[in-house]
Amino acid sequence: MTPLIEAKGFGVSIGGAAVLRGLDLHVMPHEILSIIGPAGSGKTTFLRCINRLSDLVPDLAVSGVLTLEGRGVFAPETDLADLRRRVGMVFAVPIPLPRSIYENVVFGPRLLGIRDRSRLDAIVEKTLRAAVLWDEVKDRLGTSGTKLSGGQQQRLCLARVLALEPKVLLLDEPCSGLDPISTAKIEEALQELKPQLSVVLVTNNVKQAARSSDRTAFLLMGELVEHGRTAEMFTSPTDTRTNDYISGKFG
């Protein structure tokens, strides 16, 4: 199998300061890769490069290779809107748009020009079910997305990304502000989504990485220290820094 995302010697600098150095990492189809590491290790920066939200950061420069389905993400011919539809992203802080639950979910499909009401209705039900939110909101799709609880808002954000049927889902510490029950629901949704897409999960929560990912990568100060199958890495890490981090000695 060929990797879906592949980084080779990939580096990022912001205003001349290196944030990521010589990263070699790949994501296979239908797997959940978690990226762990302390704050400032470059996890989020890497994530934002995959869907080119990095373009919004002034003075950001990249080096090396980053490909999605074999095509260079930073190639000049990349269509940003198309790239971002194939690579969905959920942020640390859930940010529903200030409109109804329904309109939040169909925001992406509407941009694609889908107007047929029954098709949109079907998308809303399917994605809200996939995000384990449907039963809680099916009777009030017209209320504002900002009125939901934090955990519900995050699942709404997940649903609206799924409405675009992405190949990859990027999650940037999606559960950092959530209670354990909401976190469990998000993790449940991820497992059910695995047959359809790949997930890159950036998390500060080492236990979450251990619970829900197939492989784990450990970043420290912009460098990839170690990566491998989650089960192996958490039982017998090869690098002492990895061991120190996952056992809670720093971070």
Binding site: L53, A81, R84, M89, I95, L97, P98, C157, V161, L164
Partner: peptide, 26 residues
Amino acid sequence: PRSYREGSFALGATGWQTTWRVTLPA
């Protein structure tokens, strides 16, 4: 909030679509 724009961009909206559908209404 910048996060509104990022959310919209991340859903594949262009700069103008983001301005017209998200930033201006907000």
